[in-house]
Amino acid sequence: MKYSYYPGCSLEKNARSYHVSTMAIAKSLGIEFVEVEDWNCCGATEYISIEKVPAYALVTRNLALAAEQNGSTNLVAPCSACYLNLKKADHYLGENVDLRQKIDLALEAGGLSYQPGSLNVQHLLEIIAVDIGYEEIEAQVKRPLFNLRVAPYYGCLVPRPAAMGSFDDPEHPTSLDNILKRLGATVIDFPLKAQCCGGHMTQISEETALELLRRLLKNAADYKADMIATLCPMCQLNLDAYQDAVNAHFGTDYKIPIVYFTQLMGLAFGLPADELGFGSEIVSARPALEKITLEEPKPARTRERGKKKTDLPLPTRPEEG
């Protein structure tokens, strides 16, 4: 399968491990990513709220390039903010004629044009969970992640808004859970999986950001997660780089490594850890990775129906994925 690939600025620098691990698993899964040439920054999370027209023009330029170069009509972005911006631009240009006229003018100045709807903008998670599918992922697993307790963290941008057509439940997504389960990991039912990490709030109001981060770390720790698997460079950066700040501020002692789900996939596919960008995280993933065993752990007992004699039966949930 062939996709146009929009890495975005993060994947060039702080989220380099996301990029290398994505490329590594793409090889295993037979996905061909064709990087959009001459792409520019998507404007990240704020620009679109500050100056609409230039922000949309900035994003749409990437769409126009991708459509013109035609690596594929499927455009994939691993970064959640890039994904949402690209998807939003494609969606609202189709809806808002006035905006579109302005953007058309801007693009024209650069000798470009874009017809909304001509690209299918997808997040990396979507193509792995939906296009590739869980069966194929499981088939590639050579070194299962047994005994590793992982909190699947989607962040707020990927599953929402449902109005633009989401591939997963916007309130309680499960695709990442299912991927990680297929890798053999023990996936916790992470209640805050779709909540916000604070985004750029670290730069604006550190207090607010630290509280949001504390909640996520606390909840993952309460569930005894060995690590948090994420799919967004912003989430990774905030949770990883500000973990110390959270600990200092709240007097806590969290040491939860934050890794990209693609890194865990690569590991389970039997690829060497150093080729997957492990080691570049601030809170080291090593102690957690050392917990991985070759033996499959016994199934969690908490979900058994009527465990104790007095217990009332629990309603069943159909297993997904």
């Binding site: 439940d169 309130e171 309680h172 039912d189 009332l312 629990l314 309603p315 069943t316 949930r317």
Partner: peptide, 24 residues
């Protein structure tokens, strides 16, 4: 109620459906 996953029915043990409570 499992169709509204954010209400936790089927995930959180002490979330009951009305009919469960009615029986209880």
């Amino acid at each position: 109620a499992r169709q509204i996953p954010q209400y936790g029915y089927g995930r959180l043990a002490n979330v009951f459906s009305s009919l469960e409570f009615e029986r209880m």
